[in-house]
Design a protein around this nucleic acid. Structure first.
Lengths: 163, 163, 163, 163
DNA sequence: TTTT
DNA sequence: TTTT
């Protein structure tokens, strides 16, 4: 009788940290920022913007995808679960850290670009490819996909409404 | 033992249709498009882009918000539930139509603009406004209806007409 | 700029219909009921219980799981997306039907039992096993991996090291 | 370009702590347990059950509802967002705690009963009650309530709370 | 530490 | 057509 579900859309704070273990497994970690827009109440009270930072943990097949494509600034969609783990800090004091263990990661169209100006649009990367490996990764994400192609050219136009 | 939850982000297909009833209740309807990016499988199979159209139904306090701010082309976030209703068509044949009854609607920052070039960006629209009423609306969507200050004035009334 | 996400918890209305195609693919369909409890408003208005029926469509590896374990009465958790398809009915009139294409299905602990009295509790069913196949199925649903092309190559291996 | 959404179904670890402030606002806090069922991989590796504890924070109108109805053992559905706040501990070291700020809380039908054997079934409580206030509360949750949890057999007991 |  |  339990459900532990998290859905996040936000921006990656820095390039993922990927670690490989002797067992052959791998883990990727990166911070993800979600922001609530600030607003002003009717009574004049100003509620400022608020940014939340999430620790994303990625395992298994998605590690390779993350290592290759997810960069600082990337806009990503993350589905997963909340997990809090504890550890003893330098002083021997028990500390807790809450992480989001991702079950699914996709690029999200934010129109952002990495620092070097290269498009991070996964769709482009995957589909222009000639990179079978990347393509394969993509399919494992169901909707490989990523940042939608330039929303300004978005064909979600209402011209072909079926009703 | 039941959950019926829908989360959509997409673009509004046409200006909402708003109807008012003698009972004082109101309903807004509009089509919302979500798109799955096409992709190419490793074996060369091309899966084309696919656009899905959803019938969004809005009631109660959010109707006024929708009527005022939601337009064709708007990028919106919708949370709600699935409902399928039936009706008899012209030929007396029973037909079914599935709709998404929205519990929450927010503008979603897509940078898109409506046909007339006016920014639909909620933040901009709401905050630049100097329109206290609009601002009030906006905040009520930032903080879902359930948390509205005065539930006793909540019009969760018996307006669920059988259509 | 799009999201099409459905989360349902409900009860299966009848044994799934499973069809196999020459291409080697398979599809399972079953109706799922979600119910909203009725309630009485402060003003005495009675809002009766309401049951919603959803058409669930399952493909790929989960078909075998559904065929084997999901039965009329089963309590299941379904994650997926909304899809509306059209077809021409006997009279040549275009009809629309909305379905939920499942990306993930899990048993949900409702303590319900199928008609023959066998426990449908996934944990029980899966773990009492001595059914290696069932066990394998079970793990694939604990860690969704949902629609990956070939579950036999699924790398959901025993990599959940305690770190 | 942001979404921060959490959906939890679990059992309340202890009676909520409710605090009132001079400003007239109130906050309720309680721990919520979600559990992942353990399972055995095909290779024999046993992945044990895992219980996750979440710090739920409730504000505004739902505080009164929580104070009145939510108890240790209650099975609840919580929708909200993740927030991590920091504070300086006794040693002046900065600490972080992650909380789930609830936008919506509902009782969830698990068929369980509280320790004293009294049915906590919200539906019953709200509707049989002749407690207009309770009824009013219920409607503010849209889907006033469901049924309750099998706490008596539930091993999510609050005895091993990590906080 | 991201982004708009 | 399910379930509580």
């Amino acid at each position: 009788m339990s459900l532990n579900k998290v859905i996040l859309i936000g921006n990656v704070g820095k390039d993922p940290d990927v670690r490989y273990f002797d067992s052959g497994t791998a883990v990727a970690n990166f911070p993800l920022a979600t922001s609530e827009r600030g607003y002003t109440l009717a009574n004049g009270t100003v509620v400022p913007e608020r940014t939340e930072w999430h620790n994303i943990v990625v395992r298994r097949d998605q590690v390779a995808f993350v290592e290759k494509w997810v960069k600082k600034g990337s806009g990503v969609y993350v589905e997963g679960k909340i997990r809090t783990r504890s550890y003893d800090d330098q002083s021997g004091v028990k500390r807790y850290v809450t992480e989001i263990h991702a079950d699914r990661i996709e690029f999200y169209n934010t129109g952002t670009r990495p620092a070097d100006g290269t498009a991070t649009n996964a769709g482009t990367g995957f589909q222009q490819g000639g990179q079978p490996q990347a393509t394969q990764q993509a399919t494992s994400y169901q909707q490989p996909v990523s940042q939608q192609p330039d929303i300004s050219t978005d064909s979600n136009s209402a011209d072909d409404l079926p009703f």
